[in-house]
Nucleic acid binder design. Structure first.
Length: 274
DNA sequence: ACAATATCCTGCGAGC
DNA sequence: TGCTCGCAGGATATTG
């Protein structure tokens, strides 16, 4: 599940390989990931564009191209964007191949097809659902303790819902939401008004630190995530609760429990989290 | 206004 | 062995 640390790693690993390269052609094996514009226009507009820079907003990867075009990519659950300099791996989930002028390429594959690509220019973020509504990115300076406290002030709901809602904070998904709540010592179903200021502080640092650590580990490869070079991350070795149902908590030995919140498997330690 | 569920999709592993 | 079923969860739409 590409969440913020994974998309950040994909961005950085792709950057070294595709920056300043010219896309001469796009091969389409499955057009459903192309969300905007319609395929013929997408094909026409992607051709002969040079990669100018790579950016990230929450879980969105934004590849800035010449002609003021932006290629916005969301990996969904199983999306992968991998660069190949020589022979490439190809299977039935490979949907798109971006061919560069120097005969290298970047492939988009997506088993579950929840991912999407948008090629946009003017008013670009209004064509991409969810992009304009994104909340604070926890890696930006704007994510201060003050702003975080302010954000929580008016909220009434369950803390895990808050963390997963991209309109509040942009970038947390199911894995890191659970990990962050474990480190902060907060049960996932706690109501926000019942969370103390001190706990909110712990939560703030948990978000900042865990995302930072996960980026250092180059992401969590628990399902099929790889970076832009096809390499796995290692943060799966640091997970304290996610997917650890029935295993002893590494802090206190209590068996990790699982509940369902928002249709998502939610893992926590019944002792360490109150 | 909010919480909770259904929806899209495919692979995988459990159980019969 | 091979089938069905439930589960995995990105985000949005819809229902409660």
């Amino acid at each position: 599940m590409p969440e913020l640390p994974e998309v950040e790693t994909i961005k950085e690993s792709l950057k070294e390989n595709i920056i300043f390269k010219k896309i001469i052609d796009l091969e389409v094996f499955c057009s459903s990931p192309i969300k905007y514009p319609e395929l013929p226009e997408f094909l026409k507009n992607i051709r002969n564009k040079k990669v100018k820079s790579l950016d990230r907003k929450g879980k969105f990867l934004i590849i800035k191209l010449s002609g003021n075009y932006n290629l916005v990519v969301h990996m969904g659950m199983t999306g992968q964007l991998v660069y190949y300099a020589s022979q490439s791996y190809f299977d039935r989930h490979t949907h798109l191949i971006f061919n560069f002028e120097d005969e290298t390429r970047m492939q988009f594959s997506d088993i579950r097809k929840f991912g999407g690509l948008w090629l946009v220019r003017k008013d670009w973020n209004k064509f991409v659902p969810g992009l304009k509504e994104l909340g604070i990115d926890p890696l930006q300076e704007e994510f201060s303790m003050e702003n975080f406290q302010k954000l929580l002030e008016k909220k009434k709901g369950i803390i895990k819902y808050f963390l997963l809602n991209q309109k509040n904070l942009a970038g947390l998904g199911n894995i890191y939401a659970d990990e962050v709540l474990f480190r902060a010592g907060i049960k996932p179903e706690r109501l926000i008004p019942h969370i103390s200021t001190q706990e909110r502080e712990k939560l703030y640092y948990a978000i900042k630190n865990i995302l930072g650590e996960a980026i250092k580990s180059r992401g969590t490869s628990v399902v099929n995530y790889t970076d832009g070079n096809g390499n796995q991350g290692s943060y799966q070795n640091n997970l304290m609760v996610y997917k650890r149902l029935g295993k002893p908590c590494q802090n206190c030995g209590t068996l990790i429990d699982r509940i369902v919140l928002g249709g998502r498997g939610t893992y926590f330690c019944p002792t360490c989290q109150v």
